[in-house]
Computed example of a mutant assay.
Amino acid sequence: MVLFYVLVLFVGIGLLYYALRQDRRLKAAKEFCTASASGELFIKFNNTAQTEELLRRSDKSLSAITKLENNVLLKLLIALAIILPLLALKKAGLVGLSDSSFLLIAIFSFVGAIVLPSMIKRLIIERRIAEISKNIPMFVDLLAVCVQTGMNIESAIKFLESSISNINKAFAPFLSKMILKSQISGLEAALDELQRELPSTQISMMCVTLKQSLKYGSAVYDSLTGLSEEIRQMELLQTEEAIGKLGAKMSVPLILFFMFPVIIIIAAPGIMKVLGGI
């Protein structure tokens, strides 16, 4: 009987996953069809896929989790690898589980195998983008030093391409693609594409500064050094803001785990005396 329930659960979760995937595809197609003639929506979807592809080149964990996410059969096998040994132990009497508890574990196993890879992939991508943004001030400083030696912006970026992996391995594929794009469509178009592929405030600030220097002919070195200082100041303000919020966050566990027990310890003897007198 339990095997029948597991089989029904397996089929139901598979159908639910297929329905949700088809619904997501239909919504994406609908948004694409109703997009404006400028093609901004297509660029957004295309760049999201390109961002993930470029990050996979330098991150084996992201590549592995992406393969797992796209392989439905492997997800189901992982869930069954958790459920079947547990079922065997239950039948042998080595694990004391009721049928309802086992069914609940089976549900969580299937749901986790289907949902967790997408969540983990999204967290890894967000973390890699955050690491790239954190290292942008150092890259801007190196770019400013190269410009100060007499290089133009294109030559400086090409020079830093070979050594950028020592700073941030995930940023190297984006820089290589930007160099290839600049050779075909110009540096300004390459900066626009980089800005769309890496949705980050620091990346946007760097791209805007470089485009302004190319367009208006301003002093590149002064602009880059000012940009680096501004980004570091912004990160410092964000750190100070996080530290300022820490006191309010710490007050919650202090109230729950310190103030209430102290109140109970102080008030308990008096309450016990009153109840004893009654």
Results as ranks from 00 to 15, higher is better:
93 G>L: 02
93 G>T: 09
107 I>Q: 06
189 A>I: 05
112 G>K: 07
48 T>G: 08
193 E>I: 01
273 K>I: 11
79 A>N: 03
46 N>W: 11
83 I>T: 01
206 M>W: 11
165 S>C: 08
6 V>Q: 08
275 L>H: 00
249 K>Q: 13
256 L>A: 14
212 Q>I: 00
193 E>R: 01
53 E>G: 05
129 I>Y: 11
211 K>G: 00
119 M>G: 08
61 S>R: 12
6 V>L: 15
254 L>E: 13
240 E>W: 01
42 F>C: 03
187 L>F: 05
18 Y>Q: 04
85 P>W: 06
111 V>L: 13
106 A>T: 11
113 A>E: 01
116 L>A: 15
277 G>N: 10
207 C>M: 11
14 G>K: 08
154 E>W: 01
100 S>R: 08
48 T>R: 11
185 S>R: 09
17 Y>E: 09
144 A>N: 14
181 K>E: 12
241 E>D: 13
224 L>E: 06
187 L>H: 10
133 S>R: 07
71 N>D: 15
164 I>V: 15
77 L>H: 03
22 Q>H: 09
33 C>P: 01
46 N>R: 11
45 F>Y: 14
204 S>N: 12
262 V>W: 03
77 L>T: 07
50 Q>Y: 06
107 I>R: 03
254 L>K: 15
193 E>N: 02
134 K>A: 12
204 S>Q: 13
210 L>E: 02
84 L>A: 09
30 K>Y: 14
11 V>I: 15
96 G>S: 08
211 K>Q: 07
83 I>Q: 06
58 S>K: 14
219 A>N: 15
258 F>T: 09
79 A>T: 04
194 L>D: 01
268 A>L: 15
6 V>W: 11
119 M>T: 10
142 L>T: 01
120 I>H: 03
53 E>R: 10
112 G>V: 09
164 I>G: 08
56 R>C: 09
40 E>T: 02
132 I>L: 12
29 A>W: 07
164 I>R: 07
215 K>R: 02
183 Q>L: 09
35 A>H: 04
124 I>G: 03
233 Q>I: 00
67 K>Q: 06
161 E>W: 02
207 C>L: 05
27 K>V: 11
53 E>A: 11
230 E>N: 15
170 A>K: 10
103 L>I: 04
167 I>N: 10
72 V>W: 05
107 I>P: 03
96 G>T: 04
156 A>Y: 01
2 V>E: 07
112 G>S: 09
178 M>W: 04
106 A>I: 05
168 N>M: 09
146 C>M: 13
214 L>S: 03
53 E>D: 09
5 Y>V: 12
104 L>S: 13
224 L>A: 08
112 G>L: 06
71 N>G: 05
207 C>F: 06
209 T>I: 08
163 S>N: 12
213 S>Y: 02
97 L>I: 00
43 I>K: 12
104 L>G: 06
54 L>N: 03
83 I>H: 04
258 F>A: 15
262 V>E: 05
101 S>N: 02
179 I>E: 04
239 T>N: 13
47 N>C: 10
150 G>E: 03
